[in-house]
Amino acid sequence: MKLTPQEYDAMIQKTVPPTQSGRTIPAAFLVGGLICVLGQGLTDLYLLFLPQQQASTLASVTLVFLSALFTGLGLYPKLAKFAGAGTLVPITGFSNSVTSPALEFKSEGFVLGLGAKLFTLSGPVIAYGVITSVIYGVIYYFTGLGG
């Protein structure tokens, strides 16, 4: 092929179908928004008999549970196909990223399969989240930023 990668890339860009953002972005907004509304509803429910901090935590834990359940039933990927980032960005997406490899790699055993692969998708989230928090902690200690 007497074609440079740049020329071919231009040809590809002209040929690929456009992403259907007119559908995907509203879908993400709708589903993501509703998951948050569910979170708020659960928080308000738990607030009837728990203090704020614990009610909020328990609401998150409930969402994590529901996501794991829906993932196991095979319903979460069906919803995600429609919702995209709407099911990725809420904490339910994090739960799905833990449950799905656990389920999938069970066939390679409980230690190196399930146990190790549990973090294949969520590992970076935890790692970089914690590292950023440590850096912030050091900055906060010396400067009091954000306190």
Binding site: T19, S21, T24, I25, P26, A27, A28, F29, L30, V31, G32, G33, L34, I35, C36, V37, G39, Q40, A83, G84, A85, G86, L88, V89, P90, G93, F94, S97, L121, S122, P124, V125
Partner: peptide, 27 residues
């Protein structure tokens, strides 16, 4: 709640549709 939560997800969808960022990177 709906508006702000939805907006966070809509931004995520823009990243999926218009950048090559993988879901793991977005999270």
């Amino acid at each position: 709640v709906f508006l702000v939560g939805g907006a966070f997800c809509a931004i995520g969808q823009v990243l999926i549709d218009y950048t090559k960022l993988t879901p793991a990177r977005i999270l």
